[in-house]
Design a protein around this nucleic acid. Structure first.
Lengths: 392, 392
DNA sequence: TCCCATTCGTTCGGTCCCTGCACTATTGTC
DNA sequence: GACAATAGTGCAGGGACCGAACGAATGGGA
């Protein structure tokens, strides 16, 4: 904060944040809510409308006497774009300022079979398609990758080993947009606190079950990053002195207990089609759910084992982070109905309040949604970065 | 941020923070460092001097041509006061804005044997003594208590059960100063990042060994609090399926493995004077160190066991929080020379970078120092809360 | 010895933005 | 139909910062 020019930005941001958090309202109401005067708010709203960030809505009938106000609310003039690069697909989602999904696509792609440069070129084309198919101007792109990231460079990627060292932002530089890169679980955690039933919760832990186990932690409204960007990485917690070897070279990591491999090994013999690595993952998960619903004892037992293992680890996370809720995503959410009871039982044996577990409702769009949200963040921080005729 | 009046506060705060973080310098240098103009900085410095927060120092000889500048730096016009209520003592420390300790006292007191009201009256008298014996005007008091706190009310206190429900701020209301209350380990963690070898480290975990084990976690420069203020409470982590019963009613909590009781049980038979609860704790710890230095096998083995247990738990903390350093305080620091090797060995088996462990150098003043630092924080956030003639 | 380049710190006019008040616009109630 | 109540907009005023110009203090060179 240095010049009074930044006062303007700060007040524009305050008004925008107020409209985001509390919904549309009249200028007069906005004035009392922000503590600014009506005159100032009038001027701020005029500028925000000129930048395409805010739009006038219907006339508000307050039911009482006096002149009715004109509602103003967030407009869809600009959007942020989230991209997810995962093992077998690319996903893109465009979210406008008002929180509406403007574009969504998901494309199967054998990512490990291609060079990163080729994958990023494909992703770039998908982003261009998203920009062309809806009116909002894109302000930024955030890419979710299944691994650790420093800056825009992938540092660790257990499931995409060929991507280590890849500068993802450089691969998308052709778009002419700011590109940021993040861990998929971290971005999913941000999606959970920005939309859905846990919107606005400042302390939340997100767990995603994939081949490994990913985690994203939000504390005090901020994503926990740690000194090297590896904070909240729960997959390789050494919780039990178990002997199962892990891909990381050590033994007893949490993901050897609750990862997808552990579930499939417990639920099916090696020659069972469930164990066929060539089959589509969602198909196999669907079959697990079908068997469990049919009451198959072995499947139910395997799921209960995963639930208990989740509870043991979640107990540590609850004790350390004290989140309001632990959200389960990825495959955990798909089979969640069979996990919650044993999970809560294991949790109740170890911590005070075992009731703070929920299943994600965002499904597989969590990471892209979180990415789009992150891409929009600079606009909320400083609305003046959007030019004046964005959607005049 | 709403009015341009707050611009002034923000810029005063920016200048003050700059001087705190980078040391004294000339006005011209401060202008380039803050990005403000010389004219503005001149005005800001004048006001800060009038508030007693900044003082002119020696003339700076830059060695090159040109008029030499006058150094300005943080002054000792105001101080924050930290108070620690613990099982067997009260401690008070006054820290001025420049980071100098202006007053320090520690008084033995049988806290469990008195009513909280009486203890707080005693603490209030000690604070008044501190205010009377040094010139800086006190701006606030922060009280460290060994337990969980919500607002200013003690919620959990394993070692001071009679304090649950006590409103600590109310007990010190007679001072006429803002009073905040915090957990002792949390405040110690803040002390570690505000002074000493780890000053400025944004991601740090502090562990303190007492009867129990306390923890304070700083991530992204912020204290981790969690949704109910219990974040970072490491003592009751369920790490091992051990059978040792814990005071919390469960089994296998970390503090049953590495707490002071575990050390003494492992190091001495029940009739050993070390196990005499009537003896002073520091005496007993001194004897442990003496025996270890003399090469006593049983003592060394017990300490190695504690070190290994610490490493097992620290591995979880390192994996989740990814701190730049884990600082050991309390009794861990006293016997630290015998803990570090087994601790690092256990850590190295579980995480990548096992070298981020250090012993606290602040000793038993960590909590009060952290408290005083917290008490000063509002001044750095908004220097205008200090009246204009603080030390005219 | 004297002058000048260089750097520090202050003074002064200008600009931007918020504030407070006055004023118009619009609606419901008596 | 008059009045009260609420919404939104113009206008003068003031506070804070910026840029430029100026005096102050020092070292170096002729």
């Amino acid at each position: 904060m240095q010049t009074q020019g930044q006062v303007r930005s700060a007040n524009l941001a305050a008004a925008l944040a107020c409209l985001r958090d509390g919904g549309p309202r009249s200028r007069a109401r906005l004035a009392t809510d922000t503590g600014l005067t009506k005159a100032t708010v009038s001027s701020l709203v005029t500028e925000l409308v000129e930048r395409g960030l805010v739009a006038e809505g219907a006339v508000h009938r307050p039911g009482s006497v006096g002149r009715p106000g004109t509602l103003v609310g967030l407009a869809g003039g600009v959007c942020g774009i989230g991209v997810e690069v995962n093992v077998d697909y690319l996903a893109v989602l465009a979210l406008d300022l008002a929180g509406q999904v403007r574009w969504e696509s998901r494309t199967a792609l054998d990512v490990p079979g291609l060079r990163p440069v080729e994958v990023l070129a494909r992703a770039s084309a998908l982003v261009s398609e998203a920009r062309a198919n809806q009116a909002a101007a894109a302000v930024g792109v955030t890419v979710a990758v299944p691994g650790g990231v420093q800056g825009s460079v992938v540092r660790t990627a257990p499931n995409l080993p060929g991507w280590v060292g890849t500068d993802v932002a450089a691969g998308l530089a052709g778009l002419g947009l700011p590109v940021t890169v993040g861990n998929d679980a971290d971005l999913s955690a941000l999606a959970e606190v920005s939309a859905g039933p846990h919107a606005g919760v400042p302390d939340l832990v997100y767990l995603t079950g994939e081949v490994g186990v990913g985690g994203g932690v939000v504390t005090g409204g901020q994503l926990l990053r740690g000194s090297t960007g590896l904070g909240g990485e729960v997959g390789h917690l050494a919780l039990t002195p178990g002997d199962a070897p892990c891909g990381c070279g050590r033994r007893g990591c949490w993901e050897t207990v609750v990862g997808l491999g552990a579930l499939l090994r417990a639920a099916a013999d090696p020659d069972d089609p469930l164990r066929d690595p060539g089959r589509d993952l969602e198909d196999r998960l669907g079959e697990v759910v079908a068997r469990a619903r049919a009451g198959d004892a072995r499947t139910l037992e395997a799921l209960a084992g995963i639930g208990t293992g989740l509870g043991v680890g979640a107990a540590v996370l609850v004790a350390l982070f004290d989140p309001a809720v632990v959200v389960l995503g990825g495959y955990f959410a798909v089979v969640g109905e069979f996990l919650l009871d044993p999970l809560r039982a294991a949790l109740a044996a170890r911590v005070e309040d075992a009731d703070r577990v929920a299943l994600s409702t965002l499904g597989f769009t969590a990471a892209v949604r979180g990415g789009a949200h992150v891409a929009l963040q600079p606009v909320f921080d400083n609305p003046t970065i959007v030019p004046l005729e964005a959607s005049a």
